[in-house]
Design a protein around this nucleic acid. Structure first.
Lengths: 242, 242
DNA sequence: GAGTGGTCTAGACCACCGC
DNA sequence: CGGTGGTCTAGACCACTCT
């Protein structure tokens, strides 16, 4: 019943306490944490509250719990990074602008047809945009969408909306998964021309495929950036939350 | 008290139930969910158990809760992807091999010195590796580490260990953050030679900087892959867990 | 069997929201 | 004011692990 001490929840204080002990090295990876009932006694709080605090540490990956044995300090893991795909991303400090180029129905070929899992030659909507930073073209973007239901596509929406949002608004099925591939390529002549640079210029290529729950692809987008004008950034932390 | 019905926890069943209602469209984004006490009555379970189920939905981003008002079905968000940096990543289907090249102390210059936040010319450890797939060189990798404490670096460890792990093992301070930048560049002549390809070949470049809690950089690594031989992949889901 | 975590209850008080 | 979520309790029973 030491709840009086402060305004922040007791379970949170417990979590911070233990986190501190772990980060300072008092508790080292592999060490066992005091049992839940013990912690309850030490802190003068009920076991449910203790569990709630431990749940925070568990979520953030600071501890691991083993049934029938106890809670153990975990080893830090850092192999996962979070990549945020903001389309109005900064391009080397400058905010990118999107300029609608065209939308038309075109027959799909090769790689795109394969990714959409439809026969070559099938007509799909193709939406092109130009990405500019400080008036200079830095990238181009093509989205291929096989089916469009409901509302018509608005130019405005094409310029500003995030691809999954566009797909979500124009289809009945729920988006289940988005896969992205990030690779380095060379600019093809047509692309180089649009970007006002030479052929074979290095380029960063991001391909997104959006899938429905049944595994059917709902759309593919391919974005190409001039190499020296764009980079993706990620950050990861050893422990996620708290 | 309908717990008898099955082996899976009641709170989990509740979460699955609501999730189902959301995915099927019975509950649409923005809709309010039955109040916690109402749900408790409907399902014949205590409010704490209801809250536990709702916590699952909250974590996965399926609902948002507003104090004093209620729980609401959330709008799907898809802008965050998880990038897993596995160094033994597959390179176009083939598993990558790492071959130790050399470790030596070199003076740092320019960009690397700036990222490590130390004066140009300061000597640091530079560890080089060659990345091969199916016997062919596909990438090179240089790690720069200013300080090494404790155990000596083993060749074996250099070939197989993950960069943050190496840093963690050879420093006393805790890793606090890893920043990564992903960009497309051209191969420099020295790099092109090692990778047995032409200069100006497109390349994917990944730069990692590892920071301590006080913001001091603990190491920098720069990995360059032949463009056509490597790509990064990410997946994101509209809702994270459950 | 003693100790651990996993689940669950039936209350309680509080802070917040809207009327 | 009544309804909502946020916190917390003091029990309980279970499944699991180790000895």
């Amino acid at each position: 019943m030491k709840a009086i001490a402060s305004f922040i929840p007791v379970y949170y204080q417990l979590a911070e306490d233990l986190k501190q002990q772990i980060e300072s090295g008092t508790l080292k990876p592999g060490d066992i944490v005091l049992s839940e009932s013990q912690l309850g006694i030490e802190y003068g709080i009920s076991r449910m509250t203790v569990r709630r605090g431990l749940a925070l540490l568990l979520e953030s990956g600071l501890i691991e719990t083993v049934r029938g044995k106890g809670n153990f300090v975990a080893k830090p893991r850092l192999q996962q990074a979070t990549l945020t795909f903001k389309e109005d991303a900064l391009v080397n400090g400058e905010k990118a602008e999107f300029k609608f180029v065209e939308v038309k129905r075109v027959p799909v070929e090769g790689e795109i047809a394969a990714m959409l899992n439809i026969p070559e030659g099938t007509k799909v909507f193709a939406i092109r945009r130009l990405i500019r930073s400080d008036k200079n073209p830095v990238g181009i973007d093509i989205k291929y969408i096989p089916y469009l239901k409901g509302k018509p596509i608005l130019e405005n929406e094409i310029e500003y909306a995030y691809f999954p949002d566009i797909v979500a608004r124009h289809t009945d099925v729920m988006i289940n998964k988005i896969e992205r591939r990030i690779m380095a390529t060379s600019l093809q002549s047509a692309e180089a021309e649009l970007l006002k640079t030479g052929t074979d210029h290095p380029a960063l290529c991001v391909i997104q495929v959006i899938y429905a729950k049944d595994g059917k692809p709902l759309g593919v987008s391919k974005t190409i950036y001039r190499g020296e004008a764009f980079e993706l950034r990620t950050v990861s932390f050893p422990y996620s939350g708290i």
